[in-house]
Design a protein around this nucleic acid. Structure first.
Length: 275
DNA sequence: ATATTCCCCTGGAAGC
DNA sequence: TGCTTCCAGGGGAATA
């Protein structure tokens, strides 16, 4: 569920609680999430101060005043909260960081698709080697219609699953891929390599637009996305095609939104507005 | 190299 | 009412 706007919302909400805080201890309550949890008693972590909290793709990076950083991923159902230390543990609260601010930072993830790992950070302000294969940030300077066109060149795959490939562009998941294609008027099944420069320009602009709007609305809550204070994202009502199978199109009112599975993921589009 | 499939895991909705 | 089945989806590994 958390795509770029949701992770960005969470990063901004966590920042005032974490930046400058020192980690006094870490407790884990399951052996692993998507990857093994190996955080307790690590000298690279315990005792260090969090210098900065950043987002890269759908990852959160907590830079420490040492050689390492925390790399966190929310998977499908991950969430964080900041609570007083005596607060009873809830179900699925798998990681607890004790901070010198008098608060605890907790990671909750029912489905355990998330991850929390410690990685070397060779260059302060940089990013760890484990994220080196990621493509451009859609809201950064490296992303454009031209970059998208180049990344799609020669690809026969449908554009929609390709939009969710983090080597092409990061942060775009199932919801915003469908939404961006609708805004750009492009059918999700279109072979990526067939898209013209003009259409790639339009698509890149639509991706930027929908992500910016979603961030402004605090993200999209479908089932259980919540930001740090427990509030839900307000972008759900702005979704134009996602989850709207059989409904009349909000734009043309004549087409009916269709659903198909592309690359194993449900995809929605308006056959009248998208070509 | 690229494209597709599967798996990880649980809760909620739908179906019988 | 209560059981089973299906589906959601990020990312990485395995397979074609």
């Amino acid at each position: 569920m958390p795509e770029l706007p949701e992770v960005e919302t969470i990063t901004r909400a966590l920042r005032p609680h974490l930046e400058g805080a020192r980690i006094l201890g870490v407790t884990t309550h399951v052996p692993r999430l998507r990857t093994p949890l190996d955080l307790e008693h690590r000298p690279e972590l315990v005792g260090h101060r969090i210098l900065a909290l950043r987002r890269r793709a759908k990852y959160l990076i907590a830079e420490l005043d040492g050689p390492c950083c925390l790399v966190l991923h929310l998977g499908m159902t991950g969430s964080f909260r900041i609570v007083p230390p005596a607060t009873p543990l809830t179900a699925w609260e798998h990681v607890v960081w004790q901070l010198d601010t008098g608060c605890e930072w907790r990671f909750n993830d029912p489905r355990r698709f998330g991850s929390a790992e410690l990685h070397p950070l060779p260059v302060p302000g940089g990013e760890p080697a484990c994220l080196a294969g990621l493509g451009p940030e859609p809201l950064g300077p490296a992303f454009s219609g031209a970059a998208l066109h180049a990344a799609c060149a020669g690809r026969r795959s449908a554009i929609k699953p390709l939009l969710m490939d983090p080597r092409i562009v990061v942060g775009v998941g199932n919801i915003y891929a469908s939404e961006a294609l609708f805004r750009a008027g492009i059918r999700p099944q279109t072979p990526a390599g067939r898209l013209s420069h003009t259409r790639c320009d339009r698509l890149a602009a639509a991706i930027v637009e929908v992500l910016r709007e979603a961030i402004a609305f605090g993200g999209t809550t479908l089932v259980n996305f919540k930001t740090v204070d427990g509030s839900e994202g307000r972008f759900r009502r702005r979704l134009l095609v996602y989850g709207r199978g059989d409904e009349p199109c909000t734009r043309c009112a004549t087409g009916r939104i269709r659903r198909a599975v592309l690359g194993g993921r449900s995809t929605w589009w308006c056959p009248h507005c998208q070509h």
